[in-house]
Design a protein around this nucleic acid. Structure first.
Length: 393
RNA sequence: CGGGGAGUAGCGCAGUUUGGCUUAGCGCGUUUGGUUUGGGACCAAAAGGUCGUGGGUUCGAGUCCCACCUCCCCGACCA
């Protein structure tokens, strides 16, 4: 992508609306903008990061043999009355009526909808176990939205649901997801703490929270008697039969006995991962994206776009990288070197390729690694090899 | 909802205390021209504002009074 063809509104100063580090950097680097409190637009760079995170999640869920589906955000309130959660969850649910006076709500979570689905389509032990998930927009009328994407009223969640015939099956699925989550967060460049937690209104006997220690985290958890601010990025629950029993999701076992399906549910705050990653990966100059989630792996900085030889060189490298399936942003703005350097650092793209007058006379290309201060000056061929190694290695 | 802070140009702010040099300013950004060109350049010109909204006080309101709206921070809740 060429910078001038897309929308990357970087800012020197952080808007007054932002207090936390990740929120300030996301706004300054032009990844997102607020529409109203708790509701945000993803700009092109922000969306690229979101999609990268989703890709990691999809890969690891596939590794657990989970199937992706997509449930509706618009739901009948009646379903929530049947589970009894219309009261428990009352405050955070957006409700309204349609023109036919049907009582509707926007889904804050999807246990009810999926249990209703399973009720109608799973009736035999032969169909179990089953592991389903979706990546979807959730709506919650939060008491206090805060820290930008950390607590939003409209946000993206990955929610998975397991259906088993017995506790053993649930244990296996729970463990498989637990391990998958560890891989997902590691690939996102996160250090996490896992704590046993209170299932709350989700219900069930056991749950684990996946917490990201962060200076501007909103949760505080009581580690080795030290207080650590955290962002909760994942939460998994052994639900048991709470929903299946209430909504009538039963199956016949091998002996012809009818029992409620044993369930588990497994959430990841996908959009929340974006600020969580930044909280753990930034420095004074800006963001330090881990390679897998970076909006682009490489940014090319031709320092003088009015010089044909510099732009030609930049475009050649750009094409070569694209041929190798390495995502790349070319800063083709007619800006001074300093502006480009500052913005490149702010965006946090892991690899910077710098092409100036000197590099051409020396017949070299400069590679700067955003994290740390490594700089390599070598012929173009060598640099391309270096980039490949760092992206895929 | 309770407590604290803030709304003035796209962003950051001054001005509000003590109403009248305000024809509302400054920095950044934007536009045009010129000079520059490896870490947010310089000169010149220009565009850009319902001073959050509504009411009130006054000869006169960004400034005083009342009501409301919005945003941020702390608390209960949560991925």
């Amino acid at each position: 992508m060429f910078w001038t063809k897309t929308l990357i509104p970087t800012q020197k100063e952080a808007p007054q609306e932002a207090e936390s580090i990740s929120h300030r950097l996301l706004l300054r680097a032009g990844f997102m903008r607020m529409l109203m409190a708790g509701v945000y637009s993803y700009l092109p760079l922000g969306l690229l990061v979101l999609r990268n995170i989703e890709k990691i999640i999809r890969q690891e869920m596939a590794a657990c043999s989970a199937s992706e589906l997509l449930l509706p955000g618009l739901q009948p309130l009646e379903l929530w009355q049947r589970s009894g959660r219309d009261r428990e969850i009352a405050e955070v649910m957006f409700r309204f009526e349609d023109r036919r006076k049907r009582k509707l709500c926007l889904g804050p979570t999807h246990e009810e909808v999926i249990t209703d689905l399973i009720k109608n389509h799973v009736s035999s032990y032969k169909q179990l176990p089953l592991l389903l998930y979706q990546i979807q927009t959730k709506f919650r009328d939060e008491i206090r939205p805060r820290f930008g994407l950390v607590r939003a009223c409209e946000f993206t969640m990955k929610d998975a649901y397991s259906f088993d015939r017995d506790e053993d099956g649930l244990d296996k699925n729970y463990r498989a997801i637990y391990d998958a989550y560890c891989r997902i967060f590691k690939r996102c460049g996160l250090e996490i703490l896992i704590i046993e937690a209170d299932p709350g209104i989700m219900g069930g006997e056991l749950s684990h929270e996946f917490m990201v220690p962060a200076a501007d985290g909103e949760d505080i958890i009581e580690v080795k008697s030290k207080k650590v601010n955290c962002i909760e990025v994942g939460h998994i629950f052994k639900l048991g039969t709470k929903y299946s029993a209430k909504l009538g999701a039963n199956f016949l076992d091998g002996k012809g006995k009818l029992s409620p399906v044993i369930m588990g549910c497994y959430g990841i705050g996908v959009s929340r991962l974006i600020p969580a990653i930044i909280e753990q990966n930034n420095d004074a100059s800006g963001i330090l994206w881990p390679m897998e989630v970076a909006p682009y792996k490489v940014i090319i900085l031709p320092l003088d776009t009015t010089k044909n030889d510099i732009m030609d060189s930049a475009c050649r490298i750009y094409e070569e990288l694209k041929d190798k399936n390495i995502t790349v942003l070319l800063d083709d703005r007619d800006e001074r070197a300093g502006v480009k350097f500052k913005d490149a650092d702010l965006l946090g793209i892991p690899l910077q390729v710098v092409i100036g007058k000197e590099s051409l006379t020396k017949k070299v290309v400069e590679l700067k690694v955003r994290r740390g201060s490594e700089r390599i000056e070598k012929p173009q061929k060598e640099i391309l090899k270096q980039i490949e190694g760092r992206v895929y290695g």
